[in-house]
Every structure is written in C-alpha cells, then in structure tokens.
Amino acid sequence: MQVNHSYWQLFKAVYSKDVTLAFRQRAEIVNPLLFFLIVITLFPLAIGPEPGLLARMAPGIIWVAALLSTMLGLDKLFRDDYHDGSLEQMIASPYPLSLCVLAKVFAHWTITGLPMVLMAPMFALLMNLESQALGATILTLLIGTPLLSFIGAIGAGLTVGLQKGGILMSLLVLPLYIPVLIFATSAIDSSSMSLAYGGQLAILGAMLAVACIAAPLAISSALRVSVS
C-alpha cells in the first residue's frame, strides 16, 4: 500500500465524516436550533413583552441560549467514536491526534455554531434589538461560537468515557464559558448604544486564537485518558 501523509487530507476526511453524519440525521442540526428558538421564546413570556425591556435583555438572552444549545451537541461530539472504536483508530493513526480533534471541533461548529450565526438576524428581530446592534450580534456569534466549541470539547473529551457524562460536562464547561459570555454581551450592548465595540471583539478573537492552539492539545490528552 502506498503511504502518503497529508495533514489536509486527514482534516478533510475527519471533517467530512462528521458533517456527512450530521446531514444524514438532520435532527442533529435542527434540534439545537429549535432549542435555541424555544429558549428565546420563553423569555418574553416570563418577563413580559415590553419592547424596551426585551431589547435591553436581548444580548444576554441570545448568548445564554447560544451557550445552552452548544452544550446539546457537545455530548455527542466524541461519544459515538468512543463507543464504536473509531477513537482508538484515530489514536493509532500516524497523524497527531490533535489534528483529528481540530477537524472534529470545526465540524461541530459547522453543525451547531454556524446555523446560529445565520439565524441571528431573526433572533435579534424577535427580541426587538436595535438594528445597529445586528452587526455586533452576528460578529460576536461568529467569533464566539467556535470558541464555545473548543472549550466545550475539552469537557466532552474528559467525560466521554463516563456513564452519565452529560450533566457533569455542563458543570465543567459552563464556568469556563463566562469570559466569552461577558465580552460578547458587552459588545452587543455597546453597539446598541452606538459605542465602539472593536475592543471586545478583539479580546474574543485573541481568546479564539489561543483556544485554536491550546485546546486541541488539551482535548487530545483528555481523549487519551478517556480511552485508556
């Protein structure tokens, strides 16, 4: 057999497998989105439909809903691979495990994060968010959701071998999401008050850059522990 090592080929293979699987069971893409929508619907019902109040709370509500719906898909991120032995095959491949992990995280973002970014205008509309805040909402979701996928995947990797890992994973991951939540909501807040929000976006971007490098290492060592 001819051996030809190409990192790009590996990335494509792992990424396309996960995305293909998600498209075969569409529920995987649709359910987190529906959940996102329902959570957002609950807030006006709970606190009253007054437009000013909703607009003030919108950044927080949108982002808390985004955090929660990201968690839904995370539980499944490594679980199937763990149970059918694909994870072992990935470890026993000549490629670094962190690269496989990077591809899987990116696939997770495509499945759960990207649809949220695309649906953002609708959520902003539902929450009576000022139109000038729409750009900030989309931008923070665009930078913030991959960050959520990276951080969440660490928790998913640590708990994949456990019987009831799901709740524990949210316990581990949600505190780590706090900085993302703070900077993202504050960016949207600033923009709805017509203030500059480049600083918050820059910090989110810096966090994403660090996560891109550090998280795959943490995730792959977590997976090695879970498999052993």
Partner: peptide
C-alpha cells in the same frame, strides 16, 4: 483527568478574573 482540568482551569482563571 483531574490534572488536565486543573491546568485548563488555571489558564482560564486570570481571564475569568479579568473579565469579571
């Protein structure tokens, strides 16, 4: 596993502290 989480936590701690 606890060690990995502790290290992830200590990297995040300054960020969390600063953001809060």
């Amino acid at each position: 596993a606890a060690c990995i989480l502790a290290i992830v936590g200590v990297i995040n701690l300054p960020i969390i502290h600063f953001s809060v």
